[in-house]
Each structure stands twice: as C-alpha cells, then as structure tokens.
C-alpha cells in the first residue's frame, strides 16, 4: 500500500524535475524550506504557496511552505533572518519587516535579509459591513470625525501591522490623531472580515482582495482603496483621492528573501527562477484570479525598493506615534 503511494508521488516528482531545470547549477540538491510569517489561508500564504509550487517546477526541487506565525509577523521574519544561510531556507517577507523594528518589536530589519525578488503589492481598502449606514467613504469619514476618540473600532491585522498603519495614515491625512479609531488586533485579515460580517467592528482596512469573498457574498462593501489608481480587478471601487480628495496611498508588498550571506549560486538561481515564475502564465492567471496586484523587481531592485519603503514607512509611523525607536 505504502509502495503504491510512494511510486505515485515519485512519479509526480519525476514530472516536476522533467520541467526546465537549471542544467548547470548544483543548487538545490534537496528540498528547500520556504517560511511564511503569516497564517495559512491569508493572502501572503496564498502567494507564497503559488510561488513555491511554480518554483518547484522551475528549479526541480520541492519548496515546502512552513507557516511560522505570531507576534504580528515578528516570529516568522526572525526565523528566516536567523536561518542557516545554506540556501535551503528561503521565505516570503512582507511590508511589516520595514515597520516592526520602528515599533521596537524586533531588532530584525530588511538589512538582515538577502533580497531575491519582489513579487506582489496590494493596496489597502476600506470595508464596512453590508448593513452599515455609510454608503460611501465620505460618510464614514464624517462619522469618524464626529466620534469620540477610541469609540469606533477597526481591524485587519495585528497591533502595529501594515493595515493598522494604513488606518493611521488615513486618519492623519484627514487631520485626526492616529489613535482616534481604536485598533482591534486580529490574527490576519480573514478573522477581521469574519468579525466585520458578524457586526463586531465598524470597518476594516485590510486589502480588498482579502475581503473579496465576503464582498462577493454581499456581506461587506468596499468603500475606497488607498492607492494612486483604481485596481484592475475591482474597477468600481474609487480611490481615496476620487472619493474624498485625500491623496494617501500605501500598500502591502511581498517578496522572496533569504538570510544574510545567502550562497551566491543559490541567489543567482533563485533570482532567475523567480523571474520566470513572475512571467509564467500560471502565476499571472492565479494572481489575477485572486485579485492580487502584480509588481516585480529582481534581487537588486527589491533591495532598493525595501530601503525606500523602510524610510517612508518609518516616517509614517513616527508621525503617527507608533514608532518607538
């Protein structure tokens, strides 16, 4: 019985290796572990799983996704930064890595990683329960301005997470203190959307895609998106600028990275593999099907991208009073 299963899987494995593998490179000779600092089922998890699946096809070894969740992403990012730099542990890193250290939650910064490629960027939306009285974002904004500090509750991710910062940035752009709306920490966007639908929250500021199934089901509405232009997959949702004249845009980006001192051979192979993954039909179809934004930068470009993001997110956090260092 075991034999049959093993053969089948081996057969499947052989099919994978038959796909264009790197002929000259020795890396990887064994399965690669791919860390994900966020829980299974969330947006980052979905992106890392599709990348892992396609990398497996490109590079010829399994990429096993391991979810190391907790502490608003601190645990997983630290685990990747501290992993042995042997080329067999890589991971997905998210915008939070340019925020957590400002909040004094970790010592780990983007400088503790070897960037390998930027794969995606998603702007936040503003979602309310379908029965909510606010028909557009201007009405919600007026209600927020009229409310007592801490009276209204919003969620979308953990304390000090990217969507928390998106809320703070939006409030500030409206001339309100960042703590005017109380943040309810949640373990990712899915529980927040569930709580929104259950009537436990006033609104959420997670990305539109993370609330998409709830929106499609008619349980939630997205009032605006905090981006410079409308999203290709959700063309009916106005940007903040269109809806209320506030020019505020941010986003949750995701990229693949390894620990520092990542072997050069593995870095070259990963860079090439991620480039092919990003251009593949499967990746584009998947990302479009799920509504994820497609943004790409190669290993060096991703490094520069993170350096710029670190400065701008740090500035935003300091002015919002979320920074401690």
């Amino acid at each position: 019985m075991t034999k049959t299963t093993r053969r089948t899987l081996l057969g499947a494995g052989a099919a994978l290796t038959a796909a264009p593998a790197l002929a000259q490179a020795r890396w990887p000779v064994r399965p690669v572990q791919m860390l994900c600092p966020w829980a299974a089922g969330g947006g980052t998890d979905a992106v890392v799983r599709i990348i892992a699946t396609l990398l497996e096809k490109e590079v010829g070894q399994p990429f096993n996704v391991v979810n190391r969740t907790g502490g608003s992403g601190v645990v997983g990012h630290a685990a990747l930064a501290q992993a042995a730099p042997d080329g067999y542990t890589v991971g997905i890193i998210t915008a939070e890595i340019c925020m957590l250290h400002w909040a004094g939650l970790t010592e780990v910064t983007y400088r503790n990683f070897t960037p390998l490629g930027l794969m995606n960027n998603d702007p936040p939306g503003i979602q309310v329960n379908n029965t909510s009285p606010y028909r557009d974002v201007r009405q919600l904004a007026d209600a927020i301005k009229a409310s007592r500090p801490g009276q209204m509750k919003a969620s979308g991710t953990g304390q000090g997470g990217i969507w928390h910062l998106a809320l703070a940035g939006w409030l500030q752009a409206m001339g309100l203190p960042a703590g005017h709306v109380r943040w309810v920490p949640s373990n990712g966007a899915a529980p927040a959307m569930q709580d929104l639908a259950a009537g436990g929250l006033d609104f959420t500021t997670n990305s539109v895609v993370e609330g998409r199934a709830m929106i499609d089901a008619g349980r939630a509405r997205s009032l605006a998106v905090m981006a410079t232009e409308r999203l290709g997959v959700f063309p009916t949702i106005p940007t903040l600028k269109e809806a209320m004249g506030i020019d505020y845009a941010t986003g949750a980006w995701r990229g693949i990275a390894g620990p520092l001192n990542f072997p050069a051979e593995a870095r070259t192979a990963m860079n090439a593999g991620l480039d092919r993954v990003f251009k593949s039909r499967e990746y584009n179809e998947f990302m479009n099907a799920r509504g994820f934004g497609l943004s790409y930068a190669d290993a060096d470009g991703f490094g520069r991208y993170m350096a710029a993001a670190d400065v701008s997110l740090g500035d935003a956090m300091k002015s919002a009073g979320l920074a401690r260092s």
């Binding site: 299963t5 093993r6 899987l9 081996l10 399994p62 067999y88």
Partner: peptide, 11 residues
C-alpha cells in the same frame, strides 16, 4: 527514513 524522506519530503 524511506517514509519521511521519500513519501513526506521531510529533510
């Protein structure tokens, strides 16, 4: 070893 390394791909 066979079960874990081959079937389950645990390094």
């Amino acid at each position: 070893h066979l079960a874990f390394y081959k079937l389950l791909r645990v390094p």
